[in-house]
């Protein structure tokens, strides 16, 4: 598909619906319904809807990949933009099990926080997408407009501190929003930082419920290079009883999953993902990711590897702990 058409769909959709791709609005908070999380407080869980968008992104990229060189791509280029968004809406069909997986990741995160004794409220319908893709694709005007709306909603809810769950949302709120949104003064903490702090403050060591299983960690670029969040996930995994292995390029020199360009060149993005996956696979078949974009990128090209989000693997501790 033509890049200008893709930029159109993304910008138009974000400004109209708050999400970069056509998706039901309640995907942001549907996962939280069974958990009865409190609605008010000053510290809120803010997912930024990145995990929830995973199945939609995967479906969208699959369409783009199919049409990368096709005639349909040329036809789409000629279509007017509202028609394009309509076409995208009809074509994006996320898989049910992927939606459930995304929801289970968020549920795990919520439970991990609760278990660490962290009190927080949830934003529900005010849990909004930050607009990161607009910012990363150079659609800065649209981004600025969207970001102002996000901040207004957060301000109205009285949010003083936000708990974020992925690298992109954390980076946007911590480093980009303060530059683009007048008066933005909300403190931003990542859930891995919180869990790690809680672990340090614990009087008694938590029971080790894994027994030395070997996993390899993939650092997301933003955690490793922009947010200096490298040691925390390793401490958490080791504490849970896992053996953490490092790929050739790790920590500050981690290697991108290719995800950020998957909408523009699915083939190149896929190739980068395969290169990285091969490198990770050399160490262990179980690959721990900490970012929804990395998860989607590796899942697209994985064969016999297991890609698992850190929250799922950490919450296995939780499940067994609770059972005990």
């Amino acid at each position: 598909m033509d890049i200008n058409s893709i930029l159109h769909i993304i910008a138009e959709n974000t400004l109209r619906t708050g999400l970069p791709l056509p998706a039901p609005r309640d995907i942001a908070y549907h996962w939280a319904k069974p958990l009865n999380l409190p609605r008010s407080g000053s510290m809120f869980l803010y997912t930024g809807v990145m995990y929830q968008l995973m199945p939609y992104i995967k479906s969208f990229v699959a369409i783009l990949e199919r049409f990368e060189d096709s005639r349909l791509a040329k036809a789409l280029r000629l279509a007017a933009s509202p028609k394009l968004t309509g076409l995208a809406r009809a074509a994006i069909k996320p898989e049910r099990d992927e939606i459930e997986l995304a929801e289970s990741i968020l549920t795990s995160i919520a439970r991990l926080l609760a278990r660490a004794g962290i009190n927080y409220a949830y934003l529900y319908e005010d849990d909004m997408y930050t607009g990161v893709i607009l910012y990363d694709m150079g659609l800065e005007e649209a981004f600025q407009e969207h970001a102002a709306r996000v901040y207004e909603r957060l301000r109205r809810r009285g949010a003083k501190k936000l708990i974020t769950v992925d690298p992109h949302t954390t980076y946007m709120l911590r480093h980009v929003y303060p530059k683009y949104v007048d008066g933005f003064d909300i403190e931003v903490v990542n859930y891995l930082e919180l869990l790690d702090e809680a672990l340090a403050g614990r009087a008694q060591p938590a029971p080790r419920l894994w027994s030395g299983e070997r996993v390899v960690v993939h650092d997301p670029c933003l955690y490793a290079r922009a947010l200096k969040l490298v040691k925390q996930p390793r401490r958490l995994l080791e504490h849970a009883g896992l053996t953490v292995l490092e790929p050739r390029r790790s920590g500050r020199m981690t290697y991108c999953c290719g995800g950020p360009i998957e909408a523009l060149s699915p083939r190149l993005a896929g190739r980068i993902a395969s290169t990285r996956l091969r490198e990770l696979r050399e160490k262990a078949p179980v690959i721990v990711t900490m970012c929804p974009i990395c998860f989607v990128s590796f899942s697209r090209v994985a064969k016999n590897e297991t890609i698992v989000d850190i929250s799922i693997i950490l919450s296995k501790t939780l499940r067994q702990d609770e059972e005990a």
Partner: peptide, 12 residues
Amino acid sequence: AMLCLLCKRCDS
């Protein structure tokens, strides 16, 4: 530039 990942590896 549209194909840049913005992964910041070059910066480092």
